[in-house]
């Protein structure tokens, strides 16, 4: 199992009919946060009009005040501005990594789920091999070969999440394939690819959207971890992991430098989880 499968599994079970819907307040809060994050990513100047790279050495290391709600960093840059402007980096990295992981997962999962036993067996062995590099291991191996940096870190995170997606998609395909309406279509003489396009994919895509929402939070955390370890984005890029990594140096005297970027990472991941589940449960009830 991967972290994602645990999440997906949970979402599936929490979405079962008959369960009390208990995400009302949380859903609303998550929605507001998601909106805030989206605006920050698309039009950061609306939220924080300042220059995220504008230095002001004389007001360095200022604790949170009304002028600088999240305080300032070692060069006097406003942390709130940097965190807001960093949203786009983190979200883009998270989304790109998820797209890579999900894309690979769809390819592998579809191959395994649709092309019969031999392909299924081969893909499964391949996935088993990938699973033998748990968590960040695959990402680290990738980075040692292609060198650190934002692009490699993003691909690395995408790669290491791909096997999880692939397995979920394969299982999903097999379930849908054996469903009554698909069997009916087979009886009606539709080809395998027709069935895949008309019946199976539409029924698999909606859960994929949930998976992607859940996965993006995880991808952001992992990409931030790589940045924190000095293998991803580098300062002065305002990516959250890089901000946190820069703040770590001054943790004993300026806690706000790492606290607020970390808070945003956590909030984003929580938002993604809550939204993913909520969408899932709504779709099941619809």
């Amino acid at each position: 199992m991967s972290e994602l499968e645990v999440q997906a599994d949970f979402a599936a079970r929490a979405g079962q009919p008959g369960r009390p819907r208990r995400l009302g307040v949380a859903e609303t809060a998550a929605g507001v946060l998601a909106l805030f994050l989206l605006v920050s990513a698309v039009a950061p100047h609306l939220v924080a009009p300042g220059d995220p790279l504008g230095i002001d050495p004389l007001s360095a290391f200022a604790p949170p005040t009304r002028a600088h709600v999240f305080g300032t960093d070692e060069s006097g840059r406003d942390i709130f501005t940097r965190v807001v402007h960093g949203t786009q980096y983190s979200l883009v990295i998270g989304a790109a990594a998820t797209a890579i992981g999900l894309g690979l997962g769809i390819v592998l999962g579809t191959l395994a789920g649709m092309l019969g036993r031999v392909v299924d067996f081969t893909v499964n062995r391949f996935l088993e091999v990938l699973f033998a590099f748990p968590g960040l291991l695959l990402a680290l191996l990738f980075i040692v070969i292609f060198g650190p940096g934002v692009a490699t870190a993003t691909i690395a995170v995408g790669l290491s999440t791909a096997p999880g997606y692939a397995r979920i998609i394969r299982a999903q395909l097999i379930t849908v394939r054996s469903a009554a309406f698909v069997e009916a279509a087979t009886v009606l003489g539709r080809t395998r690819w027709q069935i895949l396009l008309r019946h199976i994919l539409p029924n698999t895509l909606a859960p994929l959207f949930v998976l992607a929402t859940l996965g993006i939070g995880q991808a952001i955390v992992w990409a931030a971890t790589l940045s924190y370890l000095g293998l991803g984005a580098e300062p002065p890029t305002a990516e959250w992991g890089a901000l946190l990594s820069a703040g770590r140096t001054y943790i004993t005297s300026a806690w706000w430098m790492s606290f607020f970027p970390g808070l945003f990472i956590v909030l984003t991941a929580v938002t993604a989880t809550v939204l993913g589940r909520s969408i899932d449960s709504r779709m099941r009830h619809a």
Binding site: L53, G54, I55, P57, E74, S75, E234, P235, P236
Partner: peptide
Amino acid sequence: STNQSIPAEQSVFEQIQAT
């Protein structure tokens, strides 16, 4: 080089960049 320049030095370079 992130190995050879301490964080404060990397920040000096950022400020040189800005000025």
